[in-house]
């Protein structure tokens, strides 16, 4: 009967466990094309921490993204879910319209938002012109100050619907009596939200936050197509940096990018453990 789990374990060993170990092995070697390797000990790690400004730029960008975006995603998602829960008309249409972006591939999302941010005929500048704020026009993804935030905004566009659907499912799973009791007690909707709904769906919200956090720590596709990490490394993320060092730049070494990956792996692991600990349920609500 152990036979049942064998194929999965073999796949896991060959395509997940072994590559992880090999990446750590890579990180202490220089690996030239053709498989010629040379042991360099911790040189890559020293180089990374001592001299690699681009890496720290990438880390700052990624952490900014991972720090801000989960709050936006989950916050907007929760608000939208509450609106639908309040039984507005056309709820079905709203839900479909809001959820669709989740299903679209990043490549399409990226091209779409490149057009939205286009200086001459993009929607963003067109809207600003139409309300008389010509001065605020930007080359949104072409300027180092606005590029990262423009990408974060586009990314949030894709994910808000997902969080909405999950929050809605969690709210619908709450016991009716509690919410009805609150209504009998003349509890306003704001108090109902803060004191009843949020605490009761807290495990779901925490899951969503951590899920969003993990997603942002690995963000690649959108950045790669929209800006390629530019301008001036202002949107470089750790993922795009690893990809560039490994497959784009002619450094002919897979060891150094493996070092970046290994360090980032440890950072992500620590952050997720930290978050889980921070949000751990001190007293479980029973209902």
């Amino acid at each position: 009967m152990i036979v049942f789990v064998t194929p999965a374990l073999l796949m896991y060993a060959a395509f997940t466990a072994y590559p992880v170990i090999r990446t750590f092995w890579n990180s202490v070697h220089i690996i030239r094309p053709g498989g010629r390797t040379e042991f360099v000990g911790l040189d890559h790690y020293v180089e990374l921490f001592a001299n690699d400004d681009i890496f720290f730029r990438a880390v700052t960008n990624t952490l900014t993204w991972a720090g801000v975006a989960p709050l936006i995603d989950v916050g907007v998602g929760l608000l939208l879910a509450l609106c639908l829960y309040a039984r507005v008309p056309f709820a079905r249409i709203f839900r479909v319209a809001w959820f669709t972006p989740v299903l679209i591939s990043y490549v399409v999302v990226a091209i779409l938002w490149m057009w939205i941010y286009n200086y001459d005929w993009g929607v963003a500048n067109m809207l600003l012109r139409s309300v008389g704020l010509e001065d605020w026009q930007q080359t949104w993804i072409g300027h180092p100050d606005t590029a990262l935030w423009s990408l974060i905004f586009a990314h949030a566009w894709k994910w808000a619907g997902f969080n909405m659907v999950v929050c809605l499912a969690a709210i619908h799973a709450l016991p009716r009596e509690v919410l009805e009791a609150a209504e009998l007690d003349n509890c306003g909707w704001f108090h109902k939200l803060v004191f009843i709904i949020v605490p009761m769906i807290r495990p779901t919200l925490v899951n969503l936050l951590i899920l969003a956090f993990i997603g942002k720590m690995r963000v690649f596709d959108l950045v790669w197509i929209m800006t390629g990490g530019g301008p001036m490394w202002s949107t470089e993320t750790v993922s795009t940096y690893v990809y560039k060092r490994a497959f784009e730049w002619n450094t002919f070494d897979l060891g150094y990018p493996s070092t970046v990956a290994a360090i980032w792996f440890i950072v992500v692991l620590c952050c997720v453990l930290g978050l889980t600990w921070l949000f751990r349920q001190r007293d479980r609500l029973e209902y």
């Binding site: 395509f15 890579n26 993922s239 490994a246 792996f265």
Partner: peptide, 21 residues
């Protein structure tokens, strides 16, 4: 638990060595 914790791995940790393999 091991399978579950893989969900948080960033793809970079496997992608270079997968390429090599």
């Amino acid at each position: 638990f091991v399978i579950f914790s893989t969900l948080i791995f960033p793809p970079q940790i496997t992608i270079i060595s997968l390429f090599q393999s």
